[in-house]
Design a protein around this nucleic acid. Structure first.
Lengths: 337, 337
DNA sequence: CCTTTAAATGTTAACGTTTTCATCATAAAG
DNA sequence: CTTTATGATGAAAACGTTAACATTTAAAGG
């Protein structure tokens, strides 16, 4: 394997000069630089990053840690997140991906291995890990989940605004009996989406009906059973806001199974706008939240924190907006006009 | 940051001894080892991997390269793959993820950065990259796509067997007019699945009807339009084998839109068994191919090749089998019994 | 032309490990 | 008791870079 010393020899200069030439130092004569660059590329030189990192005390890698990498459904998150991160990340950064709960994840977190860490978090269970990273002194940004602790840089979607948009839309279509299938209890996203939903109801002069709050846990199955409970109610809702698209799909399946037509009998609104939302039957009206965008913003933020270690942490909430498809109609008992 | 020299000082030995003790060398007195290990852990020592890698000429990282990381649909692949890889990978290996077409991917491929490389490939477009890796001398396994070149270690699903299983199932249900929506032209997986499909037809005494081969490209949209073409035929097929689940979903949507009932009017079979296959309406009968399993096998294989550099490359085809759900029924014009 | 200053290059040490080779005990063998 | 082997430790070099400091070269000023 060829090193800067080989190049130095070939160019008749010292290896320091080569190092400088290759790293764009300003104190190299343009002619010399070009000559060295030419030789380096002719010789197919690639730098040894271990050596480089050893002396610069960097690792050139940023780590993405994922909660519940073992979980099935929200898997498209990962691809999206990667997409967003890569867009922002300088091309010679390495990006590693690990599960927060992978054995060894905790131990691997040290400043020599990571220049910065992104945590794609889904639940408060990740807090232990997050604080461990914080304690290690590595620049850190938490993605995807709204944090209560303002001392940690954080990028997430504005779940409350999204919930509000969903409720508003249902109200504007004329619905008055609007239920909600809630996300996992204890999750910030669940409570924020619920708050937004209630905001919307109240803004339209509706008072929330306790029967219309039913618990889910963000899984397809939970959406299915939650919807069944709703359908068992003596007075069914005419619209249901589901805490995420997965549950909306579960809810749809429950309706299919019981012969309830969407949106004829019941309107449905999801949250996330995952790829398949567009291909359900009927296509799902939902709240778009862009994981890629969150990841992108988060990466920018992380990079800034890496450069300026004592930047003030901020919480950055990205807008979420309604995308209308065909799972919402006017309620039957309100009539067409 | 604390180093082995600090530990050496604290223990009153040389740093060499510390290095040996911490790396399980056999020439250290058990007592000394324990003492040193205790001190190291008390001092919260973590090794500097840059230094380590510099001298051992390893990188301790394996790279996963993904084709079309920018593409939307098959995104759940990534999560699955990661799952499988992590299961096999020693906990202190780093795993990086990059897109094959990320700028800089090619340049980053050098033996100092990766001890081994996994390519999750979807198309022949990746060949350039694959051969570049091979030329660099890094141990390599190509996942997910069946390779023609036997000189590269390869793990994929047995697409032909899967296609055969799909056709067999349709035949056994009594179908005689069975169409296929093919995958992307030029992809090995497309032609293998088609071959399997034809094998099945022929084994049941059916001769393939040219009208029943229609082109798709693995995207949802292509499934949609392909199915429309099939529905326009004067004599419609009674069953359709789709090259993957995405296209099956597109096909389903086409049927919905034209009021064609599944499986009442037409039966549908997919390929992949992605998460949502279970939640379409009706639930999709499909061929299960486990990406996680492929990734797992591939990682094992890679690890073996890293240890024994001149192991013979093998091609490993993993079985794929039918999972019956509710998108297939007996054909209407054949009658119930 | 000589001095001063700036620009370009070179020397050497460092980064934190592992590894080769040497040294020193200690125990076994004579 | 010596010698010899062996088991445990240490010293020094090496890995491929960058960085601090020193030196040379070239340009400018008088």
């Amino acid at each position: 394997m060829i090193t800067i010393k080989d190049i130095a020899r070939a160019a008749g200069v010292s290896h320091t000069t080569v190092s400088r030439a290759l790293n764009g130092s300003s104190l190299i004569k343009p002619g010399t630089r070009e000559r060295i660059e030419k030789i380096a590329s002719d010789m197919n030189y690639v730098p040894n990053y271990s050596a480089k990192n050893l002396v610069t005390r960097k690792s050139n890698t940023i780590g993405l840690f994922f909660s519940s990498i073992e979980q099935g459904t929200s898997s498209s998150f990962l691809a999206e997140a990667l997409k967003g991160i890569r867009r922002e990340l300088d091309k010679n950064y390495m990006l590693t991906v690990s599960g927060i709960d992978d054995p060894g994840s905790l131990g691997s977190v040290n400043p020599r291995r990571y220049d910065g860490i992104l945590v794609m978090s889904q639940s408060e269970l990740d807090n232990g890990f997050i604080y461990h990273v914080r304690a290690s002194g590595i620049p850190l940004v938490v993605l995807n989940r709204q944090l209560d602790d303002p001392s940690i840089p954080n990028v997430a979607s504005d779940d409350r605004v999204g919930g509000r948009a969903a409720a508003d839309h249902a109200c504007e279509q004329g619905h008055r009996r609007i239920a909600i299938i809630e996300g996992k209890p204890g999750f910030k996203s669940s409570s924020e989406r619920r708050s937004g939903y209630m905001d919307g109801l109240i803004a339209h002069g509706l008072s929330p009906n306790p029967n219309y709050f039913v618990q889910g846990d963000y899984s397809i199955e939970s959406g299915y059973s939650a919807m069944n409970r709703l359908l068992d109610l003596p007075q069914r809702p005419t619209a249901v806001f589901c805490g995420n698209d997965d549950m909306a799909i579960g809810a749809m399946n429950a309706c299919f199974d019981r012969g309830v037509s969407i949106p004829g009998d019941i309107s449905l609104i999801g949250f996330d706008d995952m790829v398949f939302a567009r291909y359900t039957n009927p296509p799902l009206t939902t709240i778009r939240k862009s994981v890629a965008e969150i990841a992108e913003e988060g990466t920018k933020l992380l990079l800034r924190h890496m450069e300026h270690p004592d930047l003030k942490p901020v919480q950055h909430l990205l807008g979420s907006r309604l995308v209308r498809r065909r799972s919402v109609a006017e309620p039957a008992d309100t009539g067409g006009s």
